[in-house]
Design a binder for these strands. Structure first.
Lengths: 207, 207
DNA sequence: GCGGCTATTGGACCTTGGGGTGGTACGAAA
DNA sequence: TTTCGTACCACCCCAAGGTCCAATAGCCGC
């Protein structure tokens, strides 16, 4: 299973919290349990791969409310829902919003642990892509406005002289900017620069 | 809503078929109804954006069985499930397998039509990417084995001379292959070639 | 306000890399 | 026998990119 992963359990029923905690800990995870969505939001931080095991029905903020709230956060924690009384519309809402699984009590211990594993794996992947995108954005931020323009035009495949004409400067100037872009973006080749641009572009589009 | 879209309705209950058909036709879709999954598999072809409105519980092949079967097909038709008696595990299975929505009867006409619209939009996007990937693969197929090798190495950002060394040929030979690759792949620039390679690579990885 | 800093621009010069033309060659497949 | 895939040569052009140098404008801090 690789690195230690955290699993957050949120359930208003103390006995359920206790049994879920015991079960998940037995599989080697670091478990933190919370009695309500608000407690979780106040206290939870992971800094490592994690996931959330969440009761749908709770007094105050429900599981679906919490899911909606977390959907706006930077780091989207994968959620495994667990519920005693659920209905189909609720299930559909949760799944459409990206829940990893939705289990009804009583469920097999195996099923829960499988879902948790999938959720943690998903989070591990997410953390990886997030880290990459952060480092990419950090590099893009170091570009000056002009460099950014040249960057954008260069990766479309335009020639330096065409870019120069478009920006009303001489070719030499474009070459200078271009070289700085390669340097600041830490691209070892033009092919790599194109890939960095596409990756950065996708992120911008998502945001 | 753009182009005409087909909606396939599969339900074993004739009266439900009839009312679903009427409802969906009223929204401007071309509806074809089938009494069973097998009938649908035998007869249905669209050639235009489409989706599937599917009853979960049916004698013989169930809705979930049909979903599994279709998942292996080339063209993944988006599915909207509709059911009288469903349960949560069934819903979760359907949603995890990519269903667009899962409605329980009785449902609001508006909800069904919204789901159908989302499903058709999804299919339109899918058809677009499929068409692009087919044309891309067609172009890759015209490459000779050697050209493919050069293609693969070129888009990593390697220099011609490095590629030449790796393939034990002279640099000029690499240049010739490279030029042919640009030509056959119809890439107007090196940047475009890199993007084509990545797009083709993703498709290969998916397959 | 002055010096230092950054962003931007530009010139002269040279090397290297990518790419095209025209021609040659050879083995395998059709 | 012709076509195709592969490989190579000589020659040339242009694009990319580096070196060294220089100028202008705006901003910051002292």
């Amino acid at each position: 299973m690789g690195v230690a992963a955290s699993v957050f359990v949120v359930d208003d029923d103390p006995s359920v919290r206790k049994s879920l905690t015991r079960l998940i800990e037995s599989a080697g995870y670091i478990v933190e349990a919370f009695a309500s969505a608000r407690d979780f939001l106040k206290a939870a931080t992971a800094g490592r791969p994690c996931c959330l095991v969440l009761d749908v029905r709770m007094p105050g903020m429900t599981g679906l409310d919490l899911q909606r709230t977390l959907a706006q956060a930077v780091h989207r924690i994968p959620i495994v829902f667990v519920t005693g009384q659920g209905d189909i519309p609720m299930t559909v809402t949760a799944m459409k919003a990206g829940a990893v699984d939705f289990l009804t009590k009583p469920f097999a211990a195996r099923d829960l642990l499988d879902a948790v594993q999938r959720a943690v794996e998903k989070d591990t992947r997410n953390l990886g892509t997030e880290a990459r995108s952060r480092s990419l954005h950090a590099r893009v931020k170091t570009l000056t406005p002009r460099e950014r323009q040249v960057f954008a035009l260069v990766v479309t495949g335009m020639l330096n002289k065409q870019i120069a004409a478009q920006l009303n400067v001489v070719e030499k100037t474009v070459k200078v900017h271009r070289a700085r872009v390669m340097d600041k973006m830490r691209a070892g080749s033009f092919a790599e620069l194109v890939r960095l641009a596409d990756a950065a572009g996708v992120i911008v589009a998502q945001t």
